[in-house]
């Protein structure tokens, strides 16, 4: 049963649009799945390989801008951005990896954070190339209905899930975990840590780039402050995984559901609308103190805590 769970869930998700959901519900579902993709991508690099990135907005934004600039500069459909972003994002990831991967722990985190900010400022200032703060507007939407967008992001999500699972069940995955647990020990066992960290980074970046390219096509508008956002992309990515469960297959999905719903619920309450980051921050603090491995990772602990509350 457990082996088939991913297929069952994918099947159920594929049937969902047939239920005739309103376009608002579809929008929420699309966002949840998109965040799950980004979360799974981040999890590969940070959860499994232990290289905590604070700058996944860099890859998200690069993917988004690849799609956007194909449209604005070359006049071809932004959907080509999804395949093309593989190349562009890989190049960026290799450059960023070359600089950042020589650092460890918090220094890597901060270096990636600054990479995200550098890309944002660059995109803002290179007005002739990227359009600067005006952003890029996709004038012709592919579909008015959300169903096709839903299926596209679902396909990306299923692909990401399978890719992450495949990697983690192969030798590569064991290398990643070995690097996370003790990099020096891994190195002394003959694992080329730099190479495998770079592989993890590029894989993670490419998957995040897919989500970015999808975002451009789906939302129809991007600007540097949106797609390279530190808090709204990079930190939310971390939160999705931290809340759901670090280094678990289902964690990012669970986290994405909670984070997107929480954001929507808080925004819908007028007096609390501006306070959504307070709730995010408090949730993050509570999760780190009480469930450091997230809801999925610390599920047994969570059950025990709730059980104790009852008695």
């Amino acid at each position: 049963m457990k082996r088939y769970l991913p297929y069952i869930i994918a099947g159920l998700l594929a049937l969902l649009p047939l239920a005739g959901l309103s376009s608002y519900v579809m929008h929420i579902l699309i966002l949840v799945i998109m965040w799950a993709v980004i979360g799974m991508a981040w999890n590969l690099l940070s959860g499994y390989c232990g290289q905590v990135s604070f700058g996944h907005a860099a890859f998200f934004g690069t993917g988004a801008y690849t799609a956007g600039m194909l449209y604005s500069k070359l006049g071809i459909s932004g959907w080509w951005g999804i395949p093309l972003s593989v190349i562009v994002v890989s190049v960026f990831a290799l450059v960023i990896g070359y600089i950042c991967l020589r650092l460890r722990g918090p220094f890597f985190a901060l270096a990636t954070l600054s990479m995200g900010v550098i890309l944002r400022i660059t995109a803002e200032n290179m007005v002739d190339f990227t359009g600067g703060d005006l952003g890029i507007m996709i004038r012709e939407r592919s579909w008015v209905e959300k169903t096709w967008y839903y299926y596209i992001i679902l396909a990306i999500a299923v692909g990401t899930f399978l890719a992450v699972k495949q990697v983690m069940e192969s030798k590569l995955g064991y290398y990643f975990v070995a690097i996370r647990e003790d990099q020096d020990a891994a190195e002394s066992l003959g694992i080329n840590t730099t190479l495998y960290k770079t592989i993890a980074l590029v894989l993670s970046a490419v998957l995040t780039g897919f989500a970015g390219a999808f975002y451009t096509n789906y939302m129809g508008y991007i600007d540097p402050k949106v797609v390279f956002a530190l808090h709204d992309i990079s930190i939310v990515t971390i939160m999705v995984v931290m809340v759901g469960g670090v280094a678990t297959y289902w964690g990012p999905g669970v986290g994405a559901i909670i984070m997107v719903l929480l954001a929507e619920v808080i925004r819908s309450i007028p007096t609390l609308g501006t306070a959504h980051q307070t709730f995010f921050g408090i949730l993050l603090i509570v999760i780190i103190i009480f469930l450091p491995n997230g809801i999925v990772g610390d599920f047994a602990k969570l059950k025990r805590m709730l059980g104790m509350a009852k008695t």
């Binding site: 232990g50 780190i288 450091p292």
Partner: peptide, 25 residues
């Protein structure tokens, strides 16, 4: 104890978010 040792760094990010948002309100 947790998988990621960077938890304290992420915690300070959370504290920062709360401070900024409270100031905004």
């Amino acid at each position: 104890d947790s998988i990621l040792p960077e938890n304290q760094v992420i915690l300070t990010v959370g504290i920062g978010m709360v401070l900024v948002n409270v100031a905004t309100i």
